[in-house]
Amino acid sequence: MAASKIMAEQAPLLKAADVIQFAAYKQDPDGFAGLQIADEKVLLWWSGDVPAPFKSTVEQARTIAPVEIQNSAHSEKQLTAAADQLEAAVGLRAGGPAHTILISAIGSGVRVLTTPGSRINGLRTPDVGVPVEFKEAPPAQTMSRCNDASPWPGGIGYRNSSRSLTGGPCVDNASETHTCSAGYGVKNSAGTTYLLTARHCGMVGDVMKDSTGETIGTASVGNRSQDVMLIRATIRPYVWDGGSTSASLRAVASYGNAPVGTSLCASGARTGTTCSYTVTEWRAHFLTGGITMVRPCRARALRWRKRAALQETL
């Protein structure tokens, strides 16, 4: 089925999922594990009993699309706490072999990714109270919209001028390099505007420039565990569409959650727009380098729904 048709069919399900997800952000309930789209319904994964205040949210979502509550073994909070312990014990910063930790969006457990060839037999890990599995996988590699101007749209290639990072050449000028792709533009409740991007592309205070040397802005906010960073910049509500040398832009309409099962498109500086992605159960808890899947609810620097990219708020 064409990606556009799948996205159109998922639209009411995503709207219902947004009602639940944003309530979870606001209420921060202990039992919430995640959301999934499957079998033409929204699945709400929950550990324990759903409290009465949140049940009213579920009923509100059910006026938009079918919602079914599923029992999960563990909550998002439990898995996040477990991931924090594992990072401190076996992450690269602690001298261990783990480069990425994934947490299940349906509450089943955590998955630790290590570089192929890592010696994990006999590896001492703490008892984190949830199922833990190890899997060898190489760290994902950085994969052009090379020359734009302020106000900045999403999907452009940029380089970190504050650090000696190197990227691939922009396809329209082999002498130009970029290190990362910018996500769509966002603004906070005070009206301050930013470009959303990945935290592993730099540090707060780093100055980001396009591939021709024009300054985009300075990284102002960063969250390593969610791999999110905000570049303070003037923005316009568009995202580059089409191939890496395309002159086509797609307007930003709204924002929303991307639960498990959501069909997505990606707009990257090197790859252009590519579709037929689907959000899986596993989402990255922390990164140490390279581009990998980020938590789709909160950090979609390189992922966007055709119906929903972000302009209004974080």
Score class of each variant (00 low, 15 high):
Met229Val: 07
Met229Asp: 11
Ala258Lys: 13
Asp241Val: 07
Gly256Met: 13
Ser248Trp: 03
Gly242Tyr: 10
Ser254Gly: 05
Gly243Ala: 12
Glu214Phe: 11
Ser254Lys: 14
Ser248Gln: 04
Ser263Leu: 02
Arg236Asp: 02
Gly217Phe: 06
Ala247Thr: 00
Gly222Gln: 04
Ala219Cys: 14
Glu214His: 12
Leu230Pro: 00
Ser248Pro: 02
Arg224Trp: 07
Ile216Gln: 10
Asp227Pro: 07
Gly242Thr: 06
Ser248Thr: 11
Trp240Lys: 07
Ala251Gln: 15
Ile216Tyr: 00
Lys209His: 15
Ser220Trp: 03
Pro237His: 11
Thr262Gly: 01
Ser211Cys: 13
Met208Thr: 03
Ala251Leu: 14
Ile231Gly: 10
Ile216Asn: 04
Ser263Lys: 08
Ala247Phe: 00
Ala253Pro: 15
Thr218His: 07
Thr245Cys: 10
Ala258Arg: 14
Thr218Gln: 14
Val252Phe: 00
Leu230Ala: 12
Gly256Cys: 15
Thr262Leu: 01
Ser254Tyr: 01
Trp240Leu: 14
Arg232Lys: 13
Val252Asn: 09
Arg224Asp: 13
Arg250Val: 10
Thr212Val: 12
Met229Phe: 12
Arg232Tyr: 06
Gly243Gln: 12
Asn257Ser: 06
Ile216Ser: 05
Ser248Tyr: 11
Val239Met: 09
Gly217Ala: 06
Tyr238Met: 10
Thr234Lys: 07
Met208Gly: 10
Met208Phe: 09
Gly217Lys: 15
Asn257Leu: 04
Ala251Asn: 05
Gly261Ile: 05
Ala251Thr: 08
Ala219Tyr: 15
Glu214Pro: 00
Thr218Met: 07
Gly217Arg: 11
Arg250Asn: 05
Thr262Glu: 01
Pro259Gln: 08
Pro237Asn: 12
Arg250Thr: 05
Leu249Gln: 00
Val228Ser: 03
Gln226Trp: 00
